[in-house]
Nucleic acid binder design. Structure first.
Length: 764
DNA sequence: GACCTGCTGCGGATTG
């Protein structure tokens, strides 16, 4: 054991370690002990799950608390999941068993009597969720100072899950308000498995002095990674005769063979589709050990699970190792899956991001990914779930589906954009690039939430006090004073707050009602869901937009169910077991993809070197995509000119494409976007260059463009805000004006140069 | 062409 660090611990902690038969301290624990015991300031501890992060923080914290107990919560642990809090509670309780330091937990599943016991005799360590901490402000605002008077430490677990999202801003606001209420600045210790952006993590903890936040990093050796991309073609439902070509046929087609020589084959009655082929491979590749197969959509995972169960039955296999795990499943079913994963028996969970963090499920042999992920960050996170054991590689098998070419295919489909995205993401992962965190958002909806919460907590505050608490000393730095004033006026108009004659703001009856409601505690938006019931058993939840009519089928928990009755009042769908019928199609909405990934897709299209991690179909489809790009002129120019239509590939992410489409609308030009291009209904290259010139010279402000957004409300309390504020937030948070303008200037320059050089004709 | 997370007090009846 590292004697020097060990000697810094309290005798009771040393005794607890002996009792628990600890042989030695991890290097991160040694470093953290020195930092917390001997120095001041905040700290971030980076190590993998089960890497001893919690002890790194709490061995020294408990040592400090043991020598000076107080009648106040002295250390607060904030965790993102109830299950995580329960895990950590048991570990901390064991550590503190002989130390006379009470360990409390507070979340939605903890009994009211246990919460009251903490309020009546606050002491020791409290484990809590952000929403339960919010309930302290809402319901016990006048007790805060007493309960947290001597708070010395705040430990934030899974820190990366709080960075740059609504829940993280909410947590920062609560911590700032706690400091305001108690007059204390506790030391913060962040725990994280993957930190792509250390500066953003430091700024989360100390926005004004990020450099003062120390980082302790687990310098584990580099891990062997085995990764493969498998490509599949699926029938394009928008085709006249939906059918599937083989990858070889697709390549011949790209090389100029007429499409009717393939389409006469018409395999429309072919019952096998690409998902059967994927299921076949999953069955082979994931039938031993503990594995996770991630998907992008819950419904697609359910459908794959259904196919796998069918395969296992049809083959009369002795065991079916496939289970599903996602946020819409009933708690019992999810816990059953977790138990089997922990048991070490062969098991493969088809899961959404529910198994990306937190709950420790032991050693994962391999990871699958159905459809290319949306971001490099989540790919890294998912890959990192496998190969935790010393000497074992991290393994990922990626299944990529693109539309099969047909007579009506557009160029955007013929370059197989999903395959390009998968390769682009792998290349960026190898290059160690990660999406930067967006720390610049206004978070107006969460600011509304916190204003109402402040007024509930205190009974009334002056506008300048609110401003100081939430904006100057809180996390909403990007909201300017006039915007804050406008926001208060909006809340007055909505009759949620009112002003007393002396100037103090208080909650109006509408605000009292809103803050007293059960769903006020969370700052994030939850979609409306229906409970799916089979008799008295709950199977899980289904988004209201996905509930099919009576008589049709849903797939949930990997099984098919027939909808017998829908009760709107109690939000229940009653189902019975079904074997036949078609599952519903899943809904589409908008994700967000970073420009860097789209630019890398272009590079993949131009790169003659073949990635070694592609299977044979993927190799053929990549060559077909490159050949199509060459023949169509896309390799020579991002702009393709056809009679009456200009198709531009600006190679921008979702924000950039959105911005270009708003520019078109502002110029009254008809334009449609797909995943990678924008098509303008314009008569000539001159007309298109004219539009590019307009964008390049545009005096239009981001605000004017944002005003054209068809939908302006995105978050929980956006409906309370006037258009002016929402437009300001959209301009800042959801557009990429400089990216769009740069792309327009660059493309204009290239087009003008091409016109000046006749030997290089425009494509088409 | 998306995913995930979270959560009252209070009154009244019943039981030991």
């Amino acid at each position: 054991m590292s004697e020097e660090a060990f000697s810094l611990l309290h005798p009771g902690v040393k005794k607890a370690l002996w009792t628990m038969r600890w042989k030695q301290l991890h290097p991160i624990q040694v470093e953290a002990i020195h930092h917390i015991v001997e120095r001041d300031g905040h700290l971030i501890v980076c190590a993998q799950t089960a890497g001893g992060k919690t002890e790194a923080a709490f061995l020294p914290i408990v040592s400090k608390l043991a020598s000076a107990p107080r009648d106040s919560v002295q250390a607060m642990y904030v965790g993102p999941l109830k299950a995580l809090i329960n895990d950590q509670f048991e570990r901390l309780d064991r550590l503190c068993a002989h130390l006379d330091i009470p360990v409390h937990r507070w979340h939605g599943d903890v009994s009211a009597s246990q919460k009251k016991a903490l309020r009546d005799a606050p002491a020791g360590i409290l484990l809590i969720t952000p929403e339960s901490l919010e309930s302290n402000f809402i319901n016990y605002g006048t007790h805060l100072k007493r309960i947290y008077r001597d708070l010395e430490f705040v430990v934030i677990d899974e820190l990366h899950s709080f960075l740059s999202n609504v829940r993280g801003i909410h947590l920062r606001s609560l911590l700032a308000r706690l400091s305001a209420a108690t007059g204390r600045q506790p030391r913060v210790v962040g725990l994280s498995a993957t930190l792509g952006d250390p500066l953003a993590a430091r700024a989360f903890i100390a926005v004004d002095q990020p450099d003062t936040v120390a980082i302790v990093n687990d310098t584990g050796g580099t891990k062997e990674v085995r990764l493969g991309i498998r490509a599949y073609l699926q029938a394009d439902p928008s085709a006249d005769k939906p059918a599937r070509l083989t990858p070889e046929e697709s390549l011949k087609l790209a090389n100029g063979m007429p499409s009717d020589s393939f389409e006469s084959r018409s395999p429309a009655n072919d019952e096998r589709d690409e998902l059967d082929e994927i299921a076949e491979d999953v069955l082979q590749a994931f039938s031993t050990g503990t594995n996770l197969v991630f998907g992008n959509a819950k419904q697609s995972l359910e459908i794959l699970a259904d196919r796998l169960h069918q395969l296992v039955r049809a083959r009369h296999l002795p065991a079916d190792p496939f289970m599903v795990h996602h946020g819409s499943l009933a708690k019992d079913l999810r816990e059953e899956t977790e138990e089997v994963l922990k048991s070490g028996r062969p098991a493969t969970a088809l899961c959404s991001s529910t198994l990306e963090l937190g709950v420790d499920i032991g050693s994962v042999r391999a990871v699958g990914q159905l459809d290319p992920p949306w971001s490099v960050a989540s790919t890294v996170q998912r890959l990192g779930r496998s190969g935790r054991r010393e000497g074992q590689p991290a393994i990922m098998r990626m299944y990529v589906r693109d539309h099969s070419p047909h007579a009506g295919s557009g160029l955007s489909d013929l370059i197989f954009p999903h395959l390009l995205r998968a390769i682009a993401i792998v290349r960026l992962m190898v290059a160690k690039w990660l999406e930067p965190l967006d720390t610049d958002r206004m978070h107006l909806s969460t600011l509304v939430h916190q204003i109402l919460s402040c007024l509930r907590q205190t009974g009334g505050m002056r506008a300048d006090d609110l401003h100081r608490t939430l904006i100057v000393n809180g996390p909403f730095r990007n909201v300017a004073p006039p915007q804050f004033a406008q926001l208060l006026r909006d809340l007055g108009v909505a009759q949620l707050i009112e002003q007393m004659p002396q100037g103090e703001l208080i909650l109006a009856p509408g605000g009292e009602k809103l803050t007293a409601s059960f769903d006020f505690y969370a700052a994030f938006q939850a979609s409306e869901e229906y409970s799916v019931r089979h008799g008295t058993e709950e199977i899980g939840m289904l988004q209201s937009s996905l509930v099919p009519p009576v008589g049709e089928n849903v797939i949930l928990a990997g099984r098919r169910w027939r909808v017998d009755e829908i009760v709107v009042e109690s939000k229940c769908v009653f189902v019975s077991v079904s074997r036949g019928g078609k599952p519903p199609k899943f809904q589409s909405s908008g994700g967000e993809i970073h420009s860097r990934i789209v630019q890398e897709m272009k590079a993949v299209l131009h790169d003659a070197a073949e990635p070694p991690y592609l299977d044979e179909p993927a190799r053929l489809l990549l060559r077909a995509a490159q050949r199509t790009a060459e023949i169509s002129g896309l390799l020579r120019s991002d702009v393709l000119i056809r009679p009456g239509v200009i198709q531009w590939f600006p190679w921008l992410g979702s924000r950039g494409l959105q911005t270009l489409s708003l520019y078109a609308e502002s110029c009254k030009i008809e334009a449609t976007t797909d995943a990678v291009s924008i098509r303008y209904r314009l008569p000539s290259q001159e007309a298109f260059c004219g539009h590019l010139q307009e964008i390049a010279n545009s005096q239009r402000t981001p605000l004017e463009l944002a005003r054209l957004m068809p939908v302006k409300q995105f978050e929980k309390y956006d409906s309370l805000l006037c258009d002016d504020l929402l437009v300001a937030a959209i301009a800042r948070d959801r557009l990429d004006v400089s990216g769009a303008v740069d792309a327009a200037r660059e493309t204009l320059q290239i087009l003008n140069a091409a016109v000046a050089t006749p030997s290089c004709p425009a494509a088409g």
